[in-house]
Design a protein around this nucleic acid. Sequence first.
DNA 1: TTGTATGCGTTATCAG
DNA 2: CTGATAACGCATACAA
Lengths: 408, 408
Amino acid sequence: MARRPTIKDIARRSGVSESAVSFALNDRPGVSEDTRARVRRIAEELGWQPNSAARALSGERSGAVGLVLARPARTLGAESFFLRLVSGVQEVLSAGRIALLFQVVEDVDAECAVYRRWWAERRVDGVIVVDPRIDDPRPELLAGLGLPAVMVGGPDVPGTEPPGTEPAGTEPARPELTGPAGTEPPGTGPAGTEPPGTEPPGTEPAGTEPARPELTGPAVPSARLPSTIRADDAGAMIQVLEHLHGLGHRRITHLAGLPGLAHTARRMASLRTWSEGRGLGPDRVRSVVTDYSDTEGAAATRRILAEPAPPTALVFDNDVMALAGLAVATELGIPVPARLSIVAWDDSALCRVTHPRLTALVRDTAAFGRLAAEELMAVLAGGVPRTRQSELPRLEPRESTAPPPTAY
Amino acid sequence: MARRPTIKDIARRSGVSESAVSFALNDRPGVSEDTRARVRRIAEELGWQPNSAARALSGERSGAVGLVLARPARTLGAESFFLRLVSGVQEVLSAGRIALLFQVVEDVDAECAVYRRWWAERRVDGVIVVDPRIDDPRPELLAGLGLPAVMVGGPDVPGTEPPGTEPAGTEPARPELTGPAGTEPPGTGPAGTEPPGTEPPGTEPAGTEPARPELTGPAVPSARLPSTIRADDAGAMIQVLEHLHGLGHRRITHLAGLPGLAHTARRMASLRTWSEGRGLGPDRVRSVVTDYSDTEGAAATRRILAEPAPPTALVFDNDVMALAGLAVATELGIPVPARLSIVAWDDSALCRVTHPRLTALVRDTAAFGRLAAEELMAVLAGGVPRTRQSELPRLEPRESTAPPPTAY
DNA sequence: TTGTATGCGTTATCAG
DNA sequence: CTGATAACGCATACAA
């Protein structure tokens, strides 16, 4: 492996001291403009790049953030969502020369183990957490570790959320903690903000880190809870329902994803609030949970369409299930959209290659990722964790939605 | 952020020196079994993990490998392939406590820039390279940098490859270079193995690294070319063609992916060899290139089916195009498989949710990823780069293939 | 078998 | 404004 140039080399060639070089390269005061320019030029000539390990070791940050995807292997299907999200995340990260550590694991326990390891190995400065859940152990864990984090897509306390669209501004939401990251005075966090008293190391799967003594696990978990990037699931759901209702649909079934996920809960809650407001009972408008897979999507669709008074419209929580549902309807000889309307939550190439093409809820997933990364960068720069809301998704009507057979 | 325990802490608590601790934890001789056990126990109690930066800095490796995906943002569609590949890669990596740096970029130039940066920053010990191309600049670049790499899926010199299945063993393929990684005697590499004389820094996009002086760019590019994991595209193509031929098809069109990719070339070459052997000219059996997108897949299908004597079977190079093709056929009122058979290269949930379900070429992508990661680990451990062949994909006949309308 | 000293590349704290 | 010097945490050659 070819030798890489170091600051020492630059110092030697430019005839100044190493520290002068360091100052020059880091835009610090204490070095003349002349020297700075010369050092810069030489560094560039030599193709110098800071050695990330050395940087990390000398107390700076590691220059990397992590993202863990907890998915059982078999569910790793057509997830266009994640690649798009990651792509957006990296647009921001790579502008700041931050690397992304990516890991796919089986479940949330394994995910937590990864966070612990990254933390212990000092591998990452922060993490982006996806798929927030109800009773999610991760925010607490991360707060306890003091690992800056942004939760993409939640979490909210279900039911707390107003049914309509919230103001798109940023709300601090968390008790503010002053001072730059990493300088919290020990044990003086504002009272009353600690999560319930379980110490983070409690959920450790094997016996790798039992009973951390005083050196490590903080006695008082850090009060700094993660940032949150919220998708407006409630508003989006209303948009979908209004679209269908406007077409004349009165019997609508929402085929929801995994019930443990926060955004699933939000969508279901929003549906319920809306339907109650419209005076439509659960016999008319309802949610049915699935596991997001094509298999369950197909099975649920089959079951639902076999009911005595089946719904005239189906809302699927992802594109793969929507496709599966469409296939089932076709197979049963139920024409779409003449007798059944279908809406897919999240657009993708798939929704456009079917026949008919699927009406879908389009959102700018890359922008979502960019927002998440920006928020993380802000927190790493010492900012206060915030809750930020992404743009409202847009419903794109295509050929799979139409008025129901008999206007009701 | 809570303080992490260091070797010093362990040393203090166990009453031995730091170096003894280091030896004990790294399974090195020079420490009694008693001490080793005690140190081990205390380290575990403290939840100690090696600081990755310190490890990397002290000449060890960084403990990370990189993977770059060069895809224009709009093509980031339903790529189940990559998540599966990555998932397999990580099964192996995380067993060895190696992290994966993942990056999505727009094109190969940007990809090369990422490799340079990772190399200069000493971020990764090696990389896994996907989507090998014809006239690929990357192997040479990586060899020049001395960055261990495994090319997933190629490259081969098109035409060099025998048409049939090759023996599944491992072939050394490269001139062997003895000695552990990183200890090549300067300038004494075996002659005649250097890639043609373009220095790696030549393709640099902007003026970031012009004309590296003696310190960095090696005068003689390292002779160590990347490892290669090969998918048996030729064998798989033959399998598909034999299946269709066996059903009676004589007019078959292969809707190939991007022509610049090595595996596309291999599939096309294999098709040509096979059809020549069968005495079927390009008017009967042929390949047509696309860009892998649903749009081009649909357009090409439409064009082909409008020909005077259209093919009776279509082979699509990915699942998304296959779906698009199916939709087009359906729209044109051409029944599948009664009048048109369809095969998808690579299976996914998509192929099972359509109606009819698509006959697909199933391969164990995760296993492919595992193999790649294993090979990379082997090279990092000082092994000689090898060419390894993954398992032959299996054709899973479903409802989209049947005999052609008139047995020909 | 154990302890001591040194280096890895960078940043940061001091003196000049 | 500049130039030594000490961390940072770990590995290792060498001395005890």
